[in-house]
Design a protein around this nucleic acid. Structure first.
Lengths: 255, 255
DNA sequence: CCAAAAGTGTTATGTCTACACCCATGA
DNA sequence: TCATGGGTGTAGACATAACACTTTTGG
């Protein structure tokens, strides 16, 4: 079924009269999540042009006809932020309310990306107007967002919280090797809860496949402490995670 | 931000030159799930025209510029199947691979609907070419589907299985009043597992808010049996369900 | 009376949680 | 040596699963 459909932008399709159906611009927006100082952040760009000039927005751009939505998300991510290979890039959903972009009919397909340590990359790209914003600030309404992007960020956060339990995105926040405390911080930051380190370790090491020991140890921080073991991610993460979200909210109350 | 954007189909947008960006047709497809004889079914229509004439497809149609995606899904659902008020109508995701429709650039936004007892409604509509197909048949590859609809059905099934645990869609499959055996059948059909009736009852009646007794009882089937209590859905379903998906697959092996 | 399905009781087996306690390091 | 964080042990609370048993109907 994969016909070569590399038509130009405004060319006339073959099977349809273009006046038979309404036309839309299709954009792809990417929400980049990462951890900064043990807190969940999302990457936003400051708009230079109208409408919504000066407000924060989710990076994105037009989908090309000859690429998949996934490829478009990957391309826009690289072009706008310099990020090459996100550990996770997953579709969130489509947004197409009339008037959401006052210029024309736009349907946006939002994507969620997860990376670790995005700090340097953002600074090095031409999108110097990009910044990592704490999600807590967005939730509290402290960030002025363009279009319907406030809603999209909230939906994305909701999704990432579900996926943390249902899929293996947890290891996407950390590096190729990591300590169990680092991995635990991911859960604590995303769910805004406190998890017992002892029980966390048991849940993850109970059965093999989640984390495999590297034999190495990390060096403790300036405050001292026992050097923690370094693990790398196992293969079981493809089908979910070993940590279940606590029922009761023993969290810090940011939600 | 809700400007009146009731432009005609092929009119020129204001802020953009239409040659600056590629244009797409945006369609909305709705996957209707329901239970028939204790088995999960999906509603499909048989295509009359090329391409893929004679194959089964997900009902849907073009989004209008002056309606939301949700409204478009609701409208198409009514127009194509006669269903007026689905108990659940939720976005699944967007599909926009190049060449997925050989005629033009189409991005489809898929929706999942859940209804009970769709049998009569389908017969009464002009879409007499519609049919309820067992999802097990689709999973086994026994149904020839148009476009990339096979993949969409699989994604939808995956989604509905997750949502059954994470959200309150279970009661959408049954009527305004129901027995606990009927509700249990929903879980068993969607997850393809066997659940103990005694433990199921306890899980649901342990705390109030899930089901509230009506005081009435249903009449037993021809084989006899104690008349079961009739319940109606409580308010707690908005934030998830009380039944957790079993870890081990003690199911019938259709997956 | 008998089969069938609803509903209750009971018990064994896991899983979750909290917290006491030991280990290894930097200052 | 002390403070700090990593890692182990353990006991109670809680949830899950299996199944025997009672109840109430149709035939």
């Amino acid at each position: 079924v994969a016909t070569k459909t590399t038509r130009g932008a405004a060319s006339v399709p073959e099977g349809y009269d273009p006046r038979d159906y309404p036309v839309f611009a299709v954009t792809v927006d990417v929400l980049v999540f990462t951890l900064v100082d043990d807190a969940l952040h999302v990457l936003l760009v400051r708009r230079g042009a109208e409408p919504y000039a000066g407000r924060w927005a989710i990076p994105g751009g037009f989908k090309h006809p000859d690429e998949t939505l996934d490829d478009a998300a990957r391309r826009e991510l690289t072009e706008e932020t310099g990020i090459e290979a996100p550990a996770v890039l997953r579709q969130l959903g489509a947004y197409g309310d009339p008037g959401r972009d006052p210029r024309t009919n736009v349907v946006t397909v939002a994507y969620v990306a997860v990376v670790r340590e995005v700090g340097d990359i953002v600074a090095g790209t031409d999108a110097a107007h990009a910044a990592l914003v704490p999600v807590a600030a967005v939730l509290r309404g402290r960030v002025e967002l363009a279009f319907d992007h406030d809603r999209i960020v909230r939906d994305a956060l909701d999704r990432i919280r579900r996926d943390l339990e249902a899929t293996g995105i947890a290891t996407a926040f950390v590096g190729p090797t990591f300590t169990l405390a680092e991995l635990r911080t991911v859960y604590e930051a995303v769910w805004d809860v406190h998890l017992d380190g002892a029980n966390f370790r048991r849940s993850i090491t109970a059965e093999p496949g989640w984390v495999v020991p590297t034999g190495k140890r990390a060096t403790p921080g300036p405050a001292g402490g026992k050097p923690p073991e370094l693990f790398k991610a196992g293969t079981s993460w493809k089908r979910g995670g070993p940590i279940r979200r606590p029922r009761r909210t023993s969290g810090r109350g940011v939600t």
